[in-house]
Computed example of a mutant assay.
Amino acid sequence: MALAAVAGNTAHGMELATHGNTIVLSGPVTGTELVMVKDAFAANPKIDLVVLRNSHGGDAWTGYRVGELLRDAGVTTAVSGYCISSCSRMFLGGKNRLFTDDYPADRTYVGFHGHYDASGNLDRKSVGKGGLYTWILKYSDGKADPDLVMRWIAIEKNKGAANFFHPDVGATLGNSVFFCDGLTAQKVTSCEPIATNALDRGVVTDLRRIASPDQNTLPERQRAQQFAPSGYAALDDLGKLPLAAPAGSEQYQRYLQANLPRAFAVAPTRQHWAWVSGGAEDVNAAALKRCEERAKQACVLYSVDNNVVYR
């Protein structure tokens, strides 16, 4: 689905960008979004796709109201990256609901939990007042598992959630739904696996993975083009890793679990390495610098993000 971007604007809450008959919403939900989305529909009544991208949610009331607005409009919603908390209610508002392929499948998911106070603790009164349980059952088209919904609306800390990935993720991770209680810090896919999937439980209505109209402008997509695979090895092929020390392989496996952007550098001696992930710094330059400080000689990049670039 390729559409040209014709406009873009921001508000104090989510960022809204318009691309033809698609709008992309990203970032925190602060309460300004209902008016913003209404204005977007008023400006273009032909909008038929709403992409929700990389949002941890925020204002609970707004999530409900935007979700209801989207259902009334009969539009399709699609998740790009992560969409959690009040963002997930916006997503469920879509008449049709899909995953995108903007990001890797194991980093694209919808996360559900309860309502929380400013300290991140469960606000049971707000959950009841908002009618979260019945709302989820309704907007999942009656497919949500009542017992699982009861579990996720009672999660004590806002860091926890019931996270739904595309069912295909189960082929590599063993499962596609993971329940995090929020009490301990852990990677989403390391949380409790739940034997169900997003399609059966009405989180999505279609297993297609579509491309957002602005996909090629995403920084990670641009990095993937700039640092294309060299063909030397598959990303997870430890046997090709040019390091002699077992500790190097262990560190590379940790690197594979790290957030993007990320870079892994190695020294020609096969004895030294370094890797960096996330943050605002240039991860490529930082990994090379750390490796060279350890090796006392020039290093080269072995991997950038999800590609092996070593030759």
Score class of each variant (00 low, 15 high):
residue 191 C to V: 01
residue 207 L to V: 11
residue 176 S to V: 00
residue 121 N to P: 12
residue 213 P to F: 08
residue 202 G to Q: 04
residue 118 A to V: 14
residue 127 V to A: 05
residue 211 A to M: 13
residue 154 A to W: 02
residue 94 G to T: 09
residue 145 D to N: 15
residue 206 D to G: 06
residue 189 T to G: 00
residue 98 L to G: 07
residue 175 N to A: 15
residue 127 V to Y: 04
residue 110 V to D: 00
residue 212 S to E: 07
residue 160 G to A: 06
residue 122 L to C: 05
residue 178 F to H: 00
residue 200 D to P: 08
residue 115 H to E: 14
residue 186 Q to S: 13
residue 187 K to Q: 11
residue 178 F to L: 00
residue 162 A to R: 04
residue 125 K to L: 12
residue 159 K to G: 07
residue 112 F to G: 02
residue 167 P to M: 03
residue 206 D to E: 08
residue 186 Q to E: 14
residue 143 K to P: 12
residue 219 P to W: 08
residue 186 Q to Y: 10
residue 117 D to W: 09
residue 204 V to L: 04
residue 130 G to C: 09
residue 217 T to C: 08
residue 201 R to L: 14
residue 136 I to K: 03
residue 115 H to K: 09
residue 109 Y to E: 01
residue 193 P to S: 09
residue 157 K to L: 13
residue 114 G to N: 03
residue 112 F to H: 04
residue 154 A to R: 11
residue 113 H to G: 03
residue 189 T to V: 09
residue 113 H to F: 05
residue 219 P to E: 07
residue 162 A to I: 14
residue 171 A to C: 08
residue 200 D to Q: 13
residue 200 D to R: 12
residue 95 K to D: 11
residue 129 K to G: 09
residue 126 S to M: 14
residue 173 L to R: 09
residue 218 L to T: 10
residue 168 D to N: 10
residue 107 R to D: 05
residue 147 D to N: 14
residue 206 D to L: 05
residue 138 K to R: 14
residue 190 S to V: 02
residue 127 V to S: 06
residue 93 G to D: 05
residue 167 P to V: 03
residue 143 K to V: 07
residue 122 L to K: 00
residue 203 V to T: 07
residue 140 S to M: 08
residue 202 G to H: 06
residue 137 L to Q: 14
residue 170 G to L: 03
residue 160 G to W: 02
residue 135 W to V: 08
residue 123 D to S: 13
residue 147 D to K: 13
residue 176 S to G: 02
residue 141 D to E: 11
residue 199 L to K: 07
residue 94 G to Y: 00
residue 139 Y to Q: 07
residue 122 L to T: 03
residue 117 D to R: 06
residue 187 K to Y: 03
residue 186 Q to I: 10
residue 193 P to Q: 04
residue 185 A to W: 01
residue 214 D to L: 15
residue 109 Y to K: 00
residue 144 A to C: 09
residue 197 N to W: 01
residue 183 L to N: 13
residue 218 L to R: 14
residue 119 S to Q: 13
residue 98 L to Q: 06
residue 129 K to F: 14
residue 176 S to W: 02
residue 149 V to E: 03
residue 202 G to W: 05
residue 102 D to E: 11
residue 109 Y to N: 00
residue 197 N to F: 03
residue 144 A to Y: 07
residue 102 D to W: 08
residue 155 I to F: 08
residue 182 G to F: 02
residue 137 L to Y: 12
residue 108 T to S: 06
residue 116 Y to W: 07
residue 148 L to K: 10
residue 180 C to Q: 03
residue 137 L to E: 10
residue 143 K to H: 14
residue 95 K to E: 15
residue 165 F to D: 02
residue 99 F to Q: 02
residue 134 T to D: 15
residue 172 T to L: 04
residue 196 T to Q: 02
residue 184 T to Y: 03
residue 108 T to C: 02
residue 131 G to Q: 05
residue 155 I to R: 02
residue 102 D to M: 08
residue 146 P to C: 03
residue 182 G to D: 00
residue 137 L to M: 15
residue 142 G to C: 07
residue 214 D to M: 14
residue 168 D to V: 04
residue 125 K to H: 09
residue 126 S to C: 10
residue 180 C to Y: 01
residue 181 D to Y: 04
residue 107 R to K: 12
